[in-house]
Nucleic acid binder design. Sequence first.
DNA 1: CACTTGACCTGTCCGC
DNA 2: TGCGGACAGGTCAAGT
Length: 269
Amino acid sequence: MGQSIRAIDIVAPKSFQGNPELIIGSLITDIGRRGKHLIFEFENGCGMLVHLKMSGQMIICRDDPADCLNDGDDPSGRLYDQNEKYTRVKFKISNGQELLFNDMRRFGFVRVLDQNQMQTLEEDLGLGVEPLEDDFTADHLSKLLKKKPKSLIKPFLLDQSNIAGIGNIYADEALFAAMIAPDRQAGDLSAGEIANLAEVIQEVLEKSLKLGGSSMRMYVQTDGSRGSFLDQANVYGKEGFLCSRCNEGKIVRLKIAGRSSHFCPVCQR
DNA sequence: CACTTGACCTGTCCGC
DNA sequence: TGCGGACAGGTCAAGT
């Protein structure tokens, strides 16, 4: 923030949408997030929307650009596949740093928005409540669930138009913490279960933030270091392991709504 | 309408 | 060692 973008090198046109000229030279006044989207705001009213999808990274190169492009077993903890080969867009920042958008699978994108698109961004994204904001309460969650009583709770949590930002790992971990089976129907949850679920969603997300996120393979923080949340996961990636809570069930993995879902069949009901 | 599947890409891992 | 298939943090569009 407080810098501007001097130049944009679009290495992969498919990963870049909109007119790059709109944001070149204008001061970055805010960098924020809505759900899984990153939003850069510029002094001239234009903006830049970024979604990392499955494998995207935004990396700040502080000194030598080569510093964040190594692909070896760097003791600093950088991922082996954080490689220049996957750099799709390069931003030259006015302070001399370089900001890279890397994305192996090319699902992610960078999109420049004009002033009008910035005005309607919130509606256009169509995202639900932010789970870490004050307005995400048990009461709020209860009302959301009542609107889609037949929806299974797992796909409900993944639907960004309900709650914005919960992905597959966090849906599984939150349902484990709430002792709710992923294939329960939204309308069948008791008031107590709903209140508890709202609480543990926040706890799971906050814990992951503290640990730097879930670095399965590609995700890194802007300095290239990885997060350690998965080291402490109870169900995600734990298929076949004994449940850490009841010590009785074995964690199973089932496809629910097309997504791998991990849970303890004994203590999640 | 609501849910599921396939597609988008590229890579890894596992079994044969 | 090679090869095919399944699977991977997300989200659309199309199909049922």
